[in-house]
Amino acid sequence: MSTACSTCHIVLAEDNPADVGLVRHALQEHQVECELHVIGDADEVISFINDLDSDCTIPRPDLLLLDLNLPKKDGREILKHLRASERCWQTPVVVLSSSDAPADHRDAQINAAIHYFRKPCSLEDFLQLGSIVRAVIDHPSADAVAMRDCTGEPQGI
């Protein structure tokens, strides 16, 4: 399956280098081969989306991994901006969050994120993110996939 992802582009909007490290491990663990663009600032994510709309030579990302709690702007704003963009309105999104607050779920749902991934405490559970990413990339019809909760914890929420 790894060949299918050989050229895929994933944007990781995440400011915590430790989490960036864990995401890398998770992708590696599940043999997701991709170009990972890490952006640690909400404004930069927004300008990246704008750049995508104005410059068609920039490859369109296959997936956005979005931490909801980025500095400067709320992750929800990024989601809205993304859904309003010309080239990325259908880009699948996996929301990463340390919160299990119902409001966060709701916001993610409204803006059609595919997954709500609650960052778990256990390494094993965190590495499951890799399999989620793999599944999204292998079946990229974002709109068709109903959003599922995935906390990475065995008992769910």
Partner: peptide, 20 residues
């Protein structure tokens, strides 16, 4: 209880990663 969770997650996942 919420905010302590984050640094704790770093400690636990990276301890596990260290072991792994």
């Amino acid at each position: 209880s919420h905010d302590l969770q984050e640094p704790l997650r770093m400690v636990s996942t990276y301890s596990e990663l260290l072991r792994k």
